[in-house]
Design a protein around this nucleic acid. Structure first.
Length: 925
RNA sequence: GCCGGGAUGGCGGAACUGGUAGACGCACCGGACUCAAAAUCCGGCGGUAGUGAUACCGUGGGGGUUCGAUUCCCCCUCCCGGCACCA
């Protein structure tokens, strides 16, 4: 073997070997394999990358974790599959296309080619025969196909709603892209536009998406919590306050056009299905408060379309037990009653306008001062008949529930604040023993529904929360004015995008026949891949060859839909496609039954909600269409931590902060190694430390994986990443840590070279025995850690083994031979190249991948004598060796004789002696 | 405000189910090799006192349970992440 470690050469050779032997090709079991002879399968998947240009450290960490798990399970005897693909549609390609005047397709394919080379050079055990890119018609045709199935089932539907529109870029903006009411790029004032779009009915699955979180015991708790919060289930009562605009108190609000009083047709309680709710949005729009109008709100739409003189103000509450404490109602600025009242009230109109133009971010609204104005409209309390005034309140969201609330200042903190501000009455209707109500300040117990009892509530007095809610729900229902209802925070998923680089939505607009789905036999609707966007809207609109078509129904001239699908659609089902990527005639086939679910999914926490929720939804839809047979796609989820690096900067007296790359900084330390300062190497002058942050361009603290691989090799990069921190925690970059990883691999190589040369230095038997004891002890712990996916301690175990072997000096013995074979196998999931080479060079076998995973030998751990700690009053005072089979009395006797123990118990009486077998003796005095 | 996760040497991080706190590595200090440097190897490395054996203190702070607490319970402080006028 070579006596010097040359990463470049051995990594190239190992990768060539794997390619030649198709080492990572995953195969389904041959027909006839019985479940008793079959290997268990292990589908290990890392979130596929967006082909942005080149890999970043986050990718390297993500895929190294996945690769270590894949290789470990393979050696453990699993039939493994680790595929890779490309999440290839998306906005950055359009931006790059504009900047470089190159079509997004070409840019994307160039990036894929380069990044694939990088992945190969990192030695990942990927089955490249299953690779695909989502921007290929062979893939996205199934987006279109399934979309059409959803349309048939009514899961996909079209509706019109308000969105943020940038008039300069001519595109929809996500909420995050609107800053102080202006487009982030153009600075143009964002308009509200009512735009038709397609929605997927994820809310139909809300209950199951929430309940099935319990079927995911191996998901991180915080991800499940985030999803549960996002889905946001509230159980309560939807009920109505009837109003009559012809009533003398309301006469001034009667619209002149509204001569004849009369009830609105079809108005009734609980007739709005909870599943399909107003203001739906997808991806980013899901958070949009839909402030501009009440479009989509069914009860509101009927009233708003031509408000009748008599009607119902619908509200939702989870605290129906406080219904007798209602002293006013509050509605959102966009609520039809507010709009009506503003018609002849200029002050109110301008207030409403102010509310609408406020920040649309909900986070900002939370800290906003509570403001409101009375509408002068009165509604009737459904249970006690009192006249209740309707206020417009800036704290009521049009997008949640009915856009209107019953206000109970005594038992809701927001209502309390509001009532105090405007001098509205506060009427306590819930009492808690031992507490006195005061309107001076809000107290915690006012909102307590656990311990409260109804008071001042007539027939409901004395009831607790649950009983009162039941009784009130029953009464409201018998009046036809209300009913129990579940309200969800989750919105339907808006998937239409006015973008070019995405899956065309397969619909055709015909003047005669309306919106006509593209027939299956005309799929895929192929996206022209030679467009270069110019920044003025969707370039597809200018492609006559794409837009103009024939109506599938009447064959007349028609126009193709030019909106494309949200790119989250692509990633919602790609994991099913890997099971059968070569299937030309169907979206998926039987092979999904074998491979799914994904046994281990690995990715960033930033996808905790969107991608993971959409994928869960999509799986359930595919299941209901009979395409797959599972409820949940990802059995085990690992969310890896981010890669951080230090930030260095200078702040010139004038001008912008300048950031310096840590690689260009020298650290000064005192003689204890404590840092005293940092200077820029170029000029030797001090720079300031800005702490630790995620690697980013803006902070100039990124490290390019490519340069790392070129300088040290893939194994060093992989080893450092695994050693520096547990996978779920953040990882701090450290150049000297990388150096240390490299040093270890060189030491390993040097040791192997020495072993190979045969160093016959005599090693005493007891040292050999001790070394073997140590190796197997470390292995036992390492296997425990491996099962926990705690790779940092596995890496450290490998280092400990090398240290132990090295201490033995001589290598020509069975302990060294066995120890090295254990070490190589333990390390092979982390550093596959060097271990592949050494395994062959040292004659252990042809291919370490075929070697069994090492297990600790109990015989090696069996010692004649064991060491016991000696404590006096719980303080460590010494230790002693006793025979393995010494009994309790013997141990106690020996411990009491021990001089260290004697010294510390001198002159005191022994109260008790605690003996923990194999561990310690504690003498209590 | 609510939910989740944290806090251990100069640094990254270990510590099985309550049983030797600081494994392993980095940094630093001392030594060997060298004309010298790098690389490599050997030794040291929580704090205080002491020449030393040793003693005391020490896992964010305070209390508790226990023979024994980084680990379990209660209270508090700070940090990170997510959500947020959700009715």
């Amino acid at each position: 073997m070579q006596n010097k470690y040359n990463a470049r050469v051995i990594e190239r050779e190992a990768q060539q070997y794997w390619e030649d032997h198709r080492s990572f090709q995953a195969r389904e079991p041959a027909a006839g394999t019985t479940s008793s002879t079959a290997k268990p399968k292990y589908y290990c998947l890392s979130m596929f990358p967006y082909p942005s240009g080149k890999l970043h450290m986050g990718h390297v960490r993500n895929y190294t974790i996945g690769d270590a798990l894949t290789r470990y399970h393979r050696m453990r005897g699993y039939n493994v599959m680790q595929p890779m693909g490309w999440d290839a549609f998306g906005l950055p390609a359009e931006n790059a296309a504009m900047a470089n005047q190159v079509p997004p397709a070409q840019w994307t394919y160039d990036n894929i080619a380069y990044m694939k080379k990088q992945l190969v050079s990192l030695g990942f055990a990927i089955d490249w025969e299953r690779e695909f890119a989502t921007c290929k018609p062979e893939y996205y045709r199934w987006n279109q196909w399934l979309f059409l199935r959803m349309l048939e089932k009514g899961i996909a539907y079209k509706k019109t709603q308000i969105v943020n529109w940038d008039p300069v870029d001519q595109t929809v903006l996500a909420n995050e892209q609107v800053i102080d009411g202006r487009g982030w790029r153009t600075g143009a004032v964002v308009e509200k536009r009512e735009i038709p779009g397609y929605y997927l009915g994820i809310t139909r699955y809300a209950e199951e998406l929430l309940a099935d979180l319990d079927k995911l015991p191996d998901w991180p708790e915080r991800v499940k919590t985030m999803q549960a919060n996002w889905i946001g289930k509230s159980t309560g009562i939807r009920f109505a306050f009837p109003y009559d605009l012809t009533d003398p108190v309301n006469r001034s609000h009667l619209p002149s056009s509204m001569g004849t009083p009369g009830r609105v047709q079809g108005e009734g309680p609980a007739d709005t299905a909870s599943a399909e709710r107003p203001g739906a949005g997808g991806e980013t729009e899901a958070r949009s408060p839909q402030t501009a109008d009440f479009v989509g709100n069914e009860s509101a739409r009927r009233d708003g379309g031509g408000l009748a003189a008599m009607g119902n103000l619908w509200v939702f509450t989870t605290r129906a037990d406080t219904i007798m404490g209602v002293t006013f109602c509050a509605v959102a600025a966009e609520h039809p009653l507010a709009v009506l009242a503003a018609r002849n009230n200029p002050a109110l109109a301008s207030f409403i306008d102010e509310c609408k133009h406020g920040s649309i971010m909900e986070a900002d609204m939370a800290t906003m001062e509570k403001k409101g104005m009375p509408t002068g409209i009165f509604v009737t309390h459904p249970l006690n008949g009192e006249k209740i005034e309707v206020w417009v309140g800036n704290y009521v969201l049009m997008s949640y529930g009915e856009g209107a609330v019953m206000a109970v200042p005594a038992h809701d903190e927001r209502d309390f604040t509001f009532a105090r501000q405007y001098g509205l009455p506060i009427k306590p209707v819930v009492a808690v023993d031992g507490q006195n109500f005061s309107t001076d300040a809000w107290q915690e117990w006012y909102g307590d529904k656990q311990n409260g009892r109804c008071v001042n509530s007539g027939k409901y007095d004395g009831l607790n929360h649950a009983d009162a809610v039941d009784a009130i729900a029953a009464d409201l229902e018998s009046l036809g004015l209300g009913k129990k209802q579940v309200l969800w925070r989750l919105r339907d998923w808006g998937v239409s995008r006015q973008r070019y680089w995405g899956t065309p939505i397969p619909l055709i607009h015909c003047d005669k026949c309306g919106d006509v789905p593209v027939p299956d036999d005309q799929l895929p609707v192929v996206l022209p891949d030679d467009c270069v966007p110019d920044g003025s809207g969707n370039p597809l609109n200018k492609r006559a060859d794409f837009v103009n078509c024939r109506c599938p129904t009447c064959s007349g001239p028609a126009k193709r839909e030019t909106d494309t699908m949200d790119t989250f659609v692509d990633s919602s089902w790609y994991y099913t496609r890997f099971a059968c990527a070569d299937q030309k005639n169907a979206m998926v086939d039987e092979r999904t039954k074998y491979w799914l679910p994904v046994d281990q999914y690995i990715g960033g926490i930033e996808h905790a909600i969107l991608h993971l929720l959409y994928s869960r939804f999509w799986t359930k839809v595919m299941r209901d269409l009979g395409l797959v047979t599972l409820d949940e796609p990802f059995a085990n989820l690992l969310t890896q931590g981010m890669v951080l690096n230090e930030i260095f900067f200078r702040k010139p007296a004038s001008g912008r902060i300048l950031y310096y790359n840590p690689a260009d900084i020298d650290i000064e330390t005192d003689e204890n190694g404590k840092r005293t300062g940092a200077t820029l190497r170029a000029d030797g002058l001090p720079v300031e430390s800005g702490g630790i942050g995620t690697m980013s361009k803006s902070k100039n603290n990124g490290v390019d994986p490519q340069s790392l691989i070129e300088e040290y090799g893939a194994d060093t990069a992989r080893f450092f990443m695994m050693f520096a921190a547990p996978p779920e925690q953040t990882l701090e970059w450290s150049d000297s840590g990388v150096e240390g990883a490299s040093r270890f691999l060189r030491r390993l190589w040097d040791y192997a070279a020495k072993f190979s040369a045969g160093d016959a230095t005599a090693v005493p038997d007891d040292l050999q025995k001790k070394t073997r004891f140590e190796i197997h002890g470390v292995l036992k712990q390492a296997n425990h850690d491996m099962a926990k996916r705690q790779f940092n301690t596995v890496a450290s175990a490998a280092m400990k083994m090398l240290n132990a072997l090295d201490r033995m000096h001589g290598t020509d013995n069975d302990v060294a031979k066995e120890g090295l074979s254990i070490l190589l196998r333990l390390l092979s999931p982390i550093t596959p190249h060097i271990t592949h080479q050494l395994w062959r060079d040292l004659g252990y076998g042809q291919d370490i991948l075929a070697a069994p995973w090492p297990e600790a030998d109990p015989a090696a751990l069996d010692a004649d004598e064991i060491e016991l700690m000696l404590q006096v009053n719980g303080k460590l005072r010494g230790n002693m060796r006793v025979a393995k089979n010494a009994d309790r009395a013997e141990i106690e006797r020996l411990a009491m004789q021990n001089p260290k123990v004697q010294k510390h118990i001198a002159g005191q009486s022994v109260k008790k002696v605690v003996v923990v077998p194999g561990r310690l003796v504690n003498v209590v005095v």
